[in-house]
Simulated assay, not measured.
Amino acid sequence: MTNFAEQMKQHFKQNSKTKEHSAHTAKVHSVAWNKDGKKLASGSYDQTASVFTLDRDRLTREFSCKGHTDSVDQLCWNPTNSEVFATASGDKTVRVWDGRSGNCTSTINTKGENINICWSPNGQSIAVGNKEDLVTFIDTKTFKPRAHEQFKVEVNEITWNNTNDLFFLTTGLGTVQIYSYPDLKLIQSLQGHTANCICIKFGNRGKYFATGSADAIVNLWDLSELVCVRTFSRLDWPVRTLSFSHDGLMLASASEDHFIDISCVETGENICEVPCDSPTFTVAWHPKHRLLAYACDDKDKYNRDTGNVKLFGLSNESSSSS
């Protein structure tokens, strides 16, 4: 695996270019690729989502999705349909969008200001969490709430495992709580961090998941054993966002540090650092290529949000465009 790390170091020496793309008029909270990697969506404080198409190494903004009346805090694509995604907003709704037209196809009213959202791997459910630590489960056949679960701990991020039978949440206690699904019985609480556990992400291979915390630590967990097998500690600020590469061999993590850390999953070795001028709150590896989408809290010379989406991993020889 050391050979892999060396290969990737060389790869990113030759493919270290980043392009910026105008996406929003305010801070970008979330970026996510669709299943086939042909589209990227972003959600923003400006109450909209934007959809881009990817042609080789170029992102082209197709349209803006309007309808929310508050910040779009997080979004996710349907893992079984490359043309459908959902957004969670502080306006107490979840909206489902057609990724081809930008039209809203469903609006689901929820009980609070929504801050996190995920789509089940089988495509049958959406889970959305609000500021009061209530998680609502939405049936994607009817797009109506099927169940509500009020948690007694601060819930930061939620996700299913890849096989859809476990539901995970990161908590303000520094733990990862694991529930059976769909009956939501607590199976285990993993004490992985010494401070607020903020984010969680599963690798595509289903072998590992990673958690990031306010203790500035990223933990890599073996899913079958539910033990922490590796720790990444290159960041100095709370870890806000994580993403595994398509092959599950690289992990990107970001924070208020002015770089994104890219590490080798199997060895913990540093592969690359992506320089940033400001805090980074969302990263997403492309599902097929070594391209990393991300967004920072960048400002222009007038201290206004730039609202840009960035794409790293482009050939140093490619022509400049935005």
Score class of each variant (00 low, 15 high):
217 I>L: 05
139 D>L: 06
120 S>I: 05
223 L>F: 11
231 T>C: 07
211 T>Q: 03
165 D>P: 07
218 V>F: 03
226 L>G: 04
193 H>F: 03
230 R>G: 01
228 C>G: 01
126 I>R: 02
137 F>V: 12
175 T>V: 02
139 D>V: 08
237 W>L: 12
202 F>Q: 04
188 Q>F: 00
168 F>S: 03
194 T>M: 09
146 R>V: 02
186 L>K: 13
226 L>I: 07
127 A>R: 06
221 W>N: 12
240 R>T: 03
128 V>W: 12
213 S>C: 07
207 K>A: 09
133 D>R: 12
215 D>A: 03
160 W>D: 08
215 D>K: 07
201 K>Y: 04
206 G>P: 09
197 C>W: 05
239 V>W: 01
148 H>E: 15
181 Y>R: 06
243 S>E: 11
177 Q>C: 11
201 K>C: 11
130 N>W: 06
198 I>E: 13
176 V>P: 04
193 H>S: 09
139 D>N: 15
140 T>V: 11
209 F>M: 13
187 I>M: 08
181 Y>W: 15
162 N>S: 12
196 N>T: 06
153 V>W: 07
222 D>H: 08
177 Q>S: 10
173 L>I: 02
133 D>L: 02
176 V>S: 04
124 Q>I: 04
199 C>Y: 08
170 T>A: 10
230 R>N: 04
149 E>W: 08
214 A>R: 10
172 G>Q: 00
162 N>Q: 13
202 F>W: 15
136 T>H: 03
189 S>L: 08
177 Q>I: 10
145 P>S: 04
143 F>D: 02
159 T>D: 06
218 V>P: 01
138 I>P: 12
207 K>Q: 15
222 D>R: 06
212 G>Q: 03
181 Y>D: 04
209 F>I: 06
229 V>N: 04
195 A>Y: 12
205 R>E: 15
119 W>D: 08
134 L>T: 13
177 Q>E: 13
164 N>I: 09
213 S>A: 11
145 P>C: 02
135 V>H: 12
224 S>E: 10
137 F>E: 05
216 A>H: 06
214 A>I: 02
236 D>L: 07
241 T>W: 06
214 A>W: 08
166 L>D: 00
119 W>L: 04
180 S>C: 05
207 K>G: 02
195 A>D: 15
232 F>K: 06
155 V>R: 07
154 E>C: 01
121 P>H: 11
122 N>W: 10
232 F>N: 01
145 P>K: 10
192 G>M: 00
170 T>E: 11
136 T>I: 12
175 T>D: 13
212 G>C: 00
197 C>T: 14
206 G>F: 10
196 N>M: 00
129 G>M: 11
128 V>Y: 11
132 E>V: 11
134 L>I: 15
150 Q>S: 11
192 G>K: 01
119 W>C: 05
156 N>K: 13
200 I>P: 09
213 S>W: 02
126 I>W: 07
218 V>C: 02
173 L>W: 03
231 T>K: 14
119 W>Y: 15
232 F>G: 01
171 T>A: 13
216 A>I: 01
176 V>K: 04
239 V>F: 00
142 T>N: 12
165 D>R: 05
129 G>Y: 08
162 N>D: 06
155 V>G: 05
131 K>A: 04
222 D>Y: 05
138 I>Q: 06
156 N>F: 13
173 L>T: 15
226 L>H: 11
181 Y>C: 09
236 D>P: 00
138 I>T: 04
149 E>R: 15
195 A>R: 14
237 W>D: 14
162 N>E: 08
221 W>Y: 07
136 T>S: 14
149 E>M: 13
